[in-house]
Design a binder for these strands. Structure first.
Length: 550
RNA sequence: GGCUCCAUGGUCAAGCGGUCAAGACACCGCCCUUUCACGGCGGUAACCCGGGUUCGAUUCCCGGUGGAGUCACCA
């Protein structure tokens, strides 16, 4: 078989030589040890926490080593394209603080190693495939879907490994004439690798071992499959695109999810037959979800609530999400954070060795807890703008309300946050607004009932005397003395301790009296300090609400 | 089913041959407090099973079991 002739038959339009590309994309000039990483999302319009998790690893690895991090769009599957998906991905990642040094951007590609959209690299891939055909390392296959599934069925009935390999590779040794006549007949074809692997069934199977940055030495059987390199459309499969691109773009570290582990042998054989060095693979653990008592990998289809857009629309602060991801990313992050409560996240010395390699369950409680700690450190003015921006995008009906009096909003958000032990009331924007909503008349409503030990009659008396004695000018001590007085006058202990000593003697204590007032004013039993709230609310509104409750 | 990865409390997770087996979240109790929080203190709770190796295994090896992932002209 004259492979050169075959290559010309298959790729008459390809005139470039691979060497041209090697020259076009030279070794990068970077300091020793600098890592080049990349994120390669496919634009299906959906990006979730797991993607962000991986992106952080890439980003940290690159920037901590003085290297660079680029974005490559892996749009080789024409059936799954979603309009605007690339923009959505970039905007989502940007919101959560992931930025790229190179690659696809909102306004086109940036960088010397592009194009960064795989769909625009067809000629490059074909040039390399042509070379492979010339060397006899790849061949055209005309099998139809039906033929392929027939092979599979037969393999299943014989209990042999499924796939296109060895004796099952029907078109592996087609004659030139046969190929030519099929092409002239207009038959579609894919190009397959002529794998050098020895089929496992023969008992001669060999193994390969690969050093993984996270997992150490990986041992697995070598590849035996004649995998598809180029689809009938002339666009490569992931496998081939990965190998060509990461070589040409000079990627040093390939960070990807553990679901890629099974196809690692394919990539190893591909790198070998191309004669290129293997990048360092870092296979990260999957983010899992609990379902029916079992852990399960996060799925794009089934778990829309784990999409990045979900967190954005709930109003989680990007810093909080990052902080959470960092804590599950590196086992010593939490410890480091306790020692450096105010250090920026970038100061953390991230290492792949400290990454967990078993599946991590996503824990909303933990995220919420971390979020509280993060938000408490953000100044009220910043929090106010954050809340406003969130409302603009996700809850426009409250936007005018927030914008109307921003000083008021800032005061509200700042309640109880000064001092050594600030309150940690805020978790995410949607919850924040719920939490402070009673400050706005349109959203003020009775949510909680009076304590059980306070009768309706008592409550009414308490409120009446409170209103009567209320002086907006009172300082906190004066104000509270009056409440003590009201408590005592109505059979409630002025101090909780008195009540505890002698529970039978009282109906309750001053706390119950405060709760009645609190419910009248806020409609709920949980809120920051009463006196401070009244100062923000103003005298008129305070009186009005008490009056209405009576 | 083949192949691969993983295995410490409910969850996350230290540990890397000898520890009363850290810590965080959640949960419970107490304290502080005018309530709610915040904070402080304390508590319940774990090395999947069976063989080895060793003076000694959570830790190393083998075998089970369990969970997960993957077997496409998807990535």
């Amino acid at each position: 078989m004259d492979y050169n002739k075959l290559a010309e038959l298959l790729f008459p339009h390809i005139t470039k030589d691979p060497a041209e590309y090697e020259a076009l994309y030279p070794q990068r000039e970077l300091p020793m040890g600098a890592k080049v990483t990349r994120l390669g999302p496919s634009p299906t319009g959906f990006i979730h926490l797991g993607n962000l998790y991986g992106a952080f690893v890439d980003e940290r690895l690159a920037h901590q080593s003085g290297g660079l991090f680029y974005l490559r769009i892996e749009d080789t599957d024409d059936k799954r394209q979603v309009d605007g998906a690339v923009e959505a991905i970039i905007s989502s990642l940007e919101f959560f603080g992931v930025s790229f040094d190179e690659g696809a951007t909102m306004d086109g590609d940036k960088g010397e190693y592009g194009p960064y959209h795989q769909s625009q690299r067809a000629e490059i891939y074909q040039t390399y495939v042509k070379q492979l055909v010339q060397r006899g390392a790849a061949y055209p296959c005309f099998c139809t879907e039906e033929e392929l599934s027939a092979i599979r069925e037969e393999q299943e009935s014989l209990k042999e490994n499924p796939g296109y390999y060895g004796k099952w590779a029907k078109h592996r040794d087609l004659s030139f004439d046969e190929i030519q006549s099929r092409i002239e007949a207009g038959q579609a074809f894919v190009v397959r690798l002529r794998s050098k692997g020895i089929p496992g069934g023969s008992g001669e199977a060999r193994t390969i071992s690969v050093e993984d940055g996270i997992r150490g030495t990986l041992t697995m059987p070598e590849n035996e499959q004649d995998v598809v390199l180029l689809k009938a459309t002339g666009i490569p499969t992931y496998h081939f695109a990965h190998v060509v691109d990461d070589h040409l773009m000079r990627t040093t570290h390939v960070v990807r999810g553990a679901e890629w582990l099974p196809s690692l042998p394919i990539h190893v054989e591909l790198f070998q037959t191309m004669g290129w060095d293997l990048p360092i693979y870092c296979h990260t653990a999957q983010l899992m979800k609990m379902e029916d008592g079992n852990k399960r990998k996060l799925s794009k289809r089934k778990d829309p609530e784990l999409s990045l857009d979900y967190y954005r629309s709930e109003g989680y602060h990007p810093k909080a999400v990052r902080e959470y991801l960092l804590t599950i990313l590196n086992s010593n992050y939490e410890e480091w954070r306790m020692e450096h409560p105010d250090a920026p996240q970038e100061a953390f010395p991230f290492t792949v060795e400290k990454m967990s390699n078993s599946g991590t369950l996503f824990d909303l409680d933990k995220l919420n807890d971390i979020s509280k700690d993060v938000l408490v450190k953000i100044p009220a003015t910043e929090l106010a703008s954050f809340l406003i921006e969130w409302a603009r995008a996700y809850k426009p009906e409250i936007l005018a309300l927030l914008l109307e009096n921003q000083d008021y909003l800032i005061k509200i958000l700042d309640l109880g946050r000064s001092g050594d032990k600030p309150r940690k009331d805020f978790i995410y924007a949607r919850q924040m607004f719920d939490f402070i909503s009673y400050f706005y008349d349109d959203y003020f409503q009775q949510e909680d009932a009076y304590p059980d030990n306070v009768t309706a009659a008592d409550a009414s008396v308490i409120l009446s005397s409170y209103l009567e004695s209320y002086d907006h000018q009172d300082d906190q001590a004066q104000w509270f003395d009056k409440i003590r007085g009201i408590a005592q006058a109505n059979g409630y202990a002025a101090k909780p301790k008195d009540y505890k000593k002698n529970p039978v003697q009282y109906k309750g204590h001053v706390g119950d009296v405060s709760t009645v007032i609190r419910i009248a004013l806020m409609g709920r039993s949980m809120s920051p300090d009463l006196w401070e709230i009244q100062q923000i609310l103003g005298e008129d509104k305070t009186r009005e609400r008490i009056q209405r409750m009576i």
